[in-house]
């Protein structure tokens, strides 16, 4: 009679008497090691987050030993961060003014007007924009948008580097982010809501704007918030086109450095490890990380909310 241990062989089908099969599996040490490796890989993402925090916090503590908090959160001075924050917020606002209507427009077309087939063709055209490296956008803002579009064509008195052109191109860059997430949110709205609206005699535009868009509002908000986070964190466009001087201004024709622009510029400046400038890099980096973290968490929560709704 064959021994049956459940791992080396299945029971031989027999018509005769048989023993009680052994259902205790063999221990599989190799498999345990593999699974442990998989868990470690997944856990690495958490390690990275913690590492980011540690990497940023350590020089920041050092920084605040050398520089007082009030000197950092000041509007002017060598260590002032507020002008960088206003620079960032200004370009982000311009970017949103461009990207929100256009991104939502594209999303509404794809979700409410396009047939399944046209959507398949048209969606990649929107996503093409996401494939362009930001340094390319920065170059375009600096050498086309400012001199050709703003100065020559629109006859505006803008500086060589200015918040307007950086913000406009930043907006172009985040269109795919907003369009793609907003489309997901709009598509998730149940068909029944649309049919209800059509049944009451509403046309497509009314249905889209008054029924579908409000129903998808938390998802659309998540899309906008994530686009905003992208804009705040983007470096190369602003490093090239927004200016390399701290400038506490709301005049979008002037140049003004942003947080990311400052980090890029200071990092290129060969500051020795441990110097005040080097540490300030990390202080600004931490501030940037915290701001985007909060914004991302808001976005994740909003997405979760609309997923629960439908």
């Amino acid at each position: 009679m064959s021994t049956i241990d459940g791992t080396t062989a299945g029971p031989s089908s027999g018509t005769g008497p048989r023993g009680v099969p052994n259902l205790k599996g063999r221990s599989r040490p190799a498999e345990r090691v593999i699974v442990a490796g998989l868990i470690a890989s997944a856990g690495l993402s958490v390690v990275i987050t913690i590492a980011i925090l540690v990497a940023l916090v350590e020089p920041v503590i050092e920084f605040f030993r050398q520089v007082s908090v009030s000197e950092f959160f000041a509007t002017e001075g060598r260590f002032a961060v507020i002008p960088l924050v206003t620079g960032t917020l200004t370009v982000t606002l311009i970017a949103l003014l461009v990207a929100v209507p256009i991104g939502l427009g594209a999303a509404m077309y794809l979700s409410e007007y396009a047939s399944k087939r046209t959507r398949k063709v048209l969606k990649p055209t929107v996503e093409l924009l996401a494939g362009i490296p930001s340094v390319v956008y920065g170059f375009f803002a600096l050498f086309f948008v400012t001199p050709r579009l703003l100065q020559d064509l629109l006859n505006m008195q803008v500086n060589f580097t200015n918040l307007l052109s950086a913000g406009l191109i930043l907006g172009v860059m985040i269109i795919p982010t907003i369009a793609s997430l907003a489309e997901d949110a709009l598509t998730a709205v149940p068909q029944a809501l649309r049919q209800g609206s059509y049944a009451m005699g509403a046309n497509r535009m009314q249905t889209t704007l008054r029924v579908v868009l409000p129903a998808a509002i938390s998802g659309v908000a998540a899309a906008i918030v994530l686009g905003m986070s992208r804009a705040i964190g983007e470096t190369m466009i602003v490093a090239l086109a927004a200016g390399a001087q701290k400038n506490m201004t709301l005049d979008i024709r002037e140049g003004a450095q942003t947080m990311t622009g400052f980090i890029a510029q200071t990092a290129g400046g060969e500051n020795p490890v441990g110097s005040v400038e080097y540490n300030m890099l990390f202080a600004v980096g931490l501030l940037l990380f915290v701001i985007t973290l909060v914004i991302n968490l808001i976005s994740i929560t909003l997405v979760r909310r609309y997923r629960q709704e439908y």
Binding site: G6, P11, K24
Partner: peptide
């Protein structure tokens, strides 16, 4: 029960169960 053994018993390996 499979041949009198509870397949949900702690010591039982579901992989072994499925080979039978």
């Amino acid at each position: 029960l499979y041949h009198g053994q509870d397949v949900y018993e702690k010591s039982v390996d579901p992989i072994a169960v499925r080979t039978h």
